[in-house]
Amino acid sequence: MDFISILSIFVMACFVGYYVVWSVTPALHTPLMAVTNAISSVIIVGALVAGAAHGDAARAAASSWLGLCAITLASINIFGGFAVTARMLAMYKSKKKG
């Protein structure tokens, strides 16, 4: 993919983000932050690429260890972020009638 295609995706996604986030009800802004935090850990994709790279040379080996550390950090976020969001969302209850 060339730079312009990627930039186009990015710009379009910014607009999608703008409209989607304004439609989020203010009552759910804390779960919104928790879940955006979880999904921004999609950076784990980069960490996996680094961690999975073969390397005998010192630089490649160091890169792979950095990747593994980043995988752990991002996983804390992914599991913690989704779990805490689920925990919060489970608490929101509607008025029970009757």
Binding site: S40, R59, A74
Partner: peptide
Amino acid sequence: VAAFHSLVGLAAVLVGLAAYLNPPA
């Protein structure tokens, strides 16, 4: 949430440095 943000930040730094050290990957 602040603590979680710090982890994303640090992970980004590590991934960036890893890419610098092993660009072919």
